[in-house]
């Protein structure tokens, strides 16, 4: 799935993945997609929690080689 915007948060620790994602989302319009890859274990729960609270939807989520991938759609 090709996303409109990508955030590479690998190596960043809590709370930076959520902060980076929120900053990227600010410049996006409703319906656009954001792909995120992170290595922080907290991101696994933090990113879906943040997205749900902010009204964005999680389109995809999978782990690969200890990297957590997400695709969010801006609400």
């Amino acid at each position: 799935m090709e996303a409109d915007v990508t955030v590479d948060a690998r190596g960043l620790q809590c709370p930076m993945p959520v902060i980076k994602v929120s900053q990227a989302m600010k410049n996006m319009t409703s319906g656009q997609t954001l792909a995120i890859v992170a290595t922080d274990r907290g991101a696994l729960s933090d990113i879906p929690a943040w997205a749900g609270d902010m009204g964005h939807s999680v389109k995809e989520q999978f782990d690969q080689n200890n990297e957590y991938h997400f695709v969010l759609e801006k609400g």
Partner: peptide
């Protein structure tokens, strides 16, 4: 500072 920045990320 972690909670403050995260709260701001939550709008």
């Amino acid at each position: 500072m972690i909670l403050a920045t995260t709260g701001a990320a939550y709008g």
